[in-house]
Design a protein around this nucleic acid. Structure first.
Lengths: 134, 134
DNA sequence: GACTATCCACGACGTTTGTAGTAGATTTTG
DNA sequence: CAAAATCTACTACAAACGTCGTGGATAGTC
């Protein structure tokens, strides 16, 4: 029912993404993860992001022994849906079709992905009218 | 070649969208357009957005008689592509397929749109390897 | 010609975001 | 234990953004 707003900045989202990928982690672990992929940022900066994410309710912390352990409190799925809807509303007048077409035209797909897309579309075609948004 | 950054705020984008829809317009015209669709905002606010958009090179102005006429200096297409790429990078690890699948699953489509999608996919299937991003 | 509406240049202000340093507490290590 | 490393709380700060108000210039109206 609700369409909560996910106001997460770019840098904050990188951190949240790290948590999705790594699972519950300390600031240090997230920092290392970011460094590994070439992202230059200071420890305290990451700490700030995580603190802010917590304040906004997007992550939770467990007081552990040494350091706090943070874990995502929102699913990637939800954020994806929210951002997608935002994109649709802002630039496609809310309509999915134009974006879908653009995406398929400009994206690169493997044969498997193409088959999957086709199957999905075929199924769509059949069970019209009872759409239960994913 | 270039993948210019389109740093346009939400409110600024509303204004730019109005220009895409209305064509070259004065601040007053854009304001009216926004008001018509229930968007409450002051004249000077819109003026500020337009000035900022101009400073960033996203719109141009023609000194006319009475008032300035603003027109978009970037196409909707370009902004769409840029934002789509951003979304893909930030939340889909750059891969188009997952988003395409999600979009098709959660979107609502008319039969015509479905046919169009299918045709596009069929064509994709054939001319693999020579993708010329739109 | 005086009043009124319109237009824009500037400045302002609070919030969000990216980014990080300092300092004090705690833990690990030599 | 003393020194070094680690951790978190706090503070800071600049840029971006959303949002307007003021005030002076111009134009249209009675």
């Amino acid at each position: 029912m609700s369409e909560r707003e996910y106001d997460i900045g770019t840098a904050e989202l990188e951190v949240l993404s790290a948590l999705w990928e790594l699972g519950p982690s300390t600031v240090r672990a997230v920092l290392n993860h970011l460094h590994e992929r070439g992202r230059r940022v200071a420890y305290t900066t990451v700490l700030t992001y995580m603190t802010r994410l917590e304040a906004k309710g997007f992550v939770r912390t467990d007081k552990r022994e040494q350091a706090y352990v943070y874990r995502a409190a929102v699913t990637q799925s939800k954020v994806r849906r929210s951002r997608l809807r935002q994109l649709l509303d802002q630039l496609y007048d809310g309509a999915s079709a134009p974006l879908a077409l653009q995406l398929i035209r400009q994206g690169r797909f493997t044969r498997e992905e193409i088959d999957e897309l086709r199957q999905l579309i075929d199924r769509l075609d059949v069970k019209r009218g009872g759409s239960q948004p994913d």
